[in-house]
Design a binder for these strands. Structure first.
Lengths: 229, 229
DNA sequence: TCAAAAGTGTTCTTGATACACCCATGC
DNA sequence: GCATGGGTGTATCAAGAACACTTTTGA
């Protein structure tokens, strides 16, 4: 390798703030650490980056290894590099932000995680390292992004009712929304396709199921469309 | 140090996309590399992170060392970690995004930079590494952010005319804006304070100078105000 | 027939857009 | 006195907010 540097290097990790939505509120997926430091404490899934993999690949690998999740929506969030954030020594962590359709995959702990479990995102337990701050950053990103990118669909089952969608937005934004206005706007975006199916097994009028139309969405994005909701 | 890892580590760098505004268009500050690889080529200022400094501190240090700039607006942009982005070997770069008030400081090359020079941001020369992509990302961030955060003031002198401000927004957004509507909206934000001074040495009616009122801005932000322009 | 949620239309207010003229100054 | 940019007001249109009732279904 030409021109290697002789300087000592920080360790480089990735951590994933994995968010889901269930029973009307946002969840975060945490693992119980099986190794020191913070052994037995809850933390975001993550681990060290290998030399032969990109950051995105590392994040997906760690997520799969520690929790069994694959094929999730994943994007880079922020890189945390305070000098003392890891008691083992200088470690920089590239944090990722993942959204999963809860109920489509089961999580299962593996490798150096003793357990993997969903918690309410707003009232998560005390976290290892600076993971509480990472989680906060992820929730902020979600709140912000959901207003102009139709990203919420990553948190719902493929088919969903408009009321489910509204509840999701209410949970993310932290405030109640007007039902009629919400439905008008959501449908006006033009990326919801009504299916012929209905909700099942409810003790009242069954709601129509919709699905997010990715193709139409992709076309509209190309045209420079704006998706405020 | 307890529990060190024995895995080989990527090198960790910071790079800064430094943007300025002059003569009606956006500029980017580039340095001419004095060392291999890409010796003699233009690149973003940057360098390796030391063990005893945070990422932000590293970015400011490298910027000061290579270009002489201090006290600039700086925020983290994105972390680039493709495996082959550096021919010397695996290097991950945390990119920063800086805005400077052009004309308030002179740039001067130093350390391993042969020269430091401003270029039109839209028509920059070929860049070393993946720096063209970093620059693109920075311009995108600016275009996006300027719509809801009054960040443009970081690119103007402390006192400026409304026409200067408008030209800045036009350069960033890449389209012409209506003068009357722009002024109405800009003044309606409530963060512009009219000074008693006027433009000097112009061959026509002199425009009033305004300044950005950071205190009022900070108060409005606390109230959860929204700054679309 | 009651409870529970689905579904829909209209009014009002606000902000966005479009547009044309007079004003002050230096040369 | 003319060229150059500074500065202003209003009418129209579109989108957002507020708000109440009818419909369907299962228990």
């Amino acid at each position: 390798m030409p021109h290697t540097y002789e300087y000592p290097r920080p360790a480089l990790a990735v951590d994933c703030a994995v968010l889901g939505f269930d029973e009307g509120d946002l969840k975060v997926l945490l693992i119980k650490r099986g190794l020191e430091p913070f052994k037995g404490k809850w933390a975001l899934p993550g681990g060290f980056v290998r030399l032969d993999e990109s950051l995105d690949v590392a994040a997906r690998r760690e997520l799969a290894e520690e929790t069994g999740l694959t094929h999730v929506f994943l994007e880079q969030l922020y890189t945390f590099g305070e000098v003392k954030r890891d008691p083992r020594g200088r470690t920089v962590s590239v944090a990722y932000f993942a959204l999963v359709k809860l109920g489509e995959q089961q999580v299962q702990a593996a490798t150096d995680a003793q357990a993997a479990q969903w918690f309410s995102a707003e009232q998560a337990p005390a976290l290892a390292f600076d993971h509480a701050r990472i989680l906060e950053t992820a929730l902020g990103r979600l709140r912000n992004k959901v207003r102009y990118v139709p990203i919420g669909f990553e948190l719902l089952p493929r088919k969903f009712t408009l009321t489910q969608l509204q509840h999701l937005y209410e949970a993310i934004l932290g405030r109640a929304l007007d039902k009629r206005n919400f439905r008008k706007k959501a449908l006006a975006l033009g990326v919801l396709e009504a299916t012929k199916e209905q909700e099942q097994d409810v003790a009242h009028r069954a709601a129509r199921l919709y699905r997010f139309d990715e193709e139409t969405y992709a076309k509209l994005v190309k045209k420079g469309f704006n998706f405020e909701l």
